[in-house]
Amino acid sequence: MPDFDVSSSRLKMKPFNGDGASQPMSRMGRGPSLDYITYAPGPREVGTRNAVGGAAASALRMGSEALNSYALTHWATKWLENNEAKILSKMMEKGDGAFVVQVNYMESDAFETRTYLSRDIYLLGTVPKVSDASKILTPELMYGPKMDIQRPNNSIKLRYAYLVGERA
């Protein structure tokens, strides 16, 4: 999942965790193995050179996935900046201090590289405090039936992220 811990000049958003203390998910990568240094010379060298080449290709793929994930994070940041005045006015109407947002995006696993495609962001409502976000984010909303694209090889999946924001 992309890092949706974004902020603008007056607002900040984090993923909804359910207990009010939301934390962004950390990404765990896999680096190349340096075992080839200890191998004895011989036929194994061919395999290790191929493994090093595969590790370099894997690092390139991980880099492209990270850049694509950052593009989705940047899109969410720009949306927050562009809608900052609208969100603040809705919060001031009711005297609330937090807001709830739904992010819709697509995830594609084409050519062994995960690609994220932005779809839309919706303001679901405002609440008095971040801990009250569960009044809007009910289990029926979060885990209920959703629209999905039917692909024979499941190459594209629709994803939904729920974010809770407050004044910075």
Rank of each mutant, 00 (worst) to 15 (best):
P2E: 05
P2V: 12
F4L: 11
S8F: 03
R10Q: 13
L11N: 02
L11A: 04
M13F: 00
K14Q: 04
P15V: 07
N17P: 00
S22A: 11
S22Q: 03
Q23H: 04
P24R: 01
S26H: 08
G31T: 13
G31N: 11
S33R: 12
Y36L: 13
T38S: 14
P41Q: 11
G42S: 08
P43A: 11
E45Y: 02
A51Y: 14
V52P: 09
G53Y: 05
G54E: 14
G54W: 02
A59Q: 13
L60H: 14
A66E: 13
A66L: 13
N68I: 08
A71I: 10
A71C: 13
L72A: 15
H74C: 09
T77Q: 15
K78H: 12
E81Q: 15
N82Y: 06
A85G: 06
I87V: 11
S89V: 05
E93P: 03
E93L: 07
A98F: 10
A98Q: 03
V101M: 12
V103D: 00
M106R: 12
M106G: 06
E112A: 06
T113L: 00
T113S: 03
R114F: 03
T115I: 04
Y116S: 02
L117W: 00
S118N: 10
R119M: 14
D120A: 10
L123Q: 02
L123C: 04
L124R: 10
G125Q: 07
V127G: 05
P128C: 08
S134W: 04
T138W: 05
T138I: 06
T138V: 12
K146G: 04
P152D: 10
N154V: 00
L158R: 11
G165A: 13
G165Q: 05
R167W: 08
R167F: 09
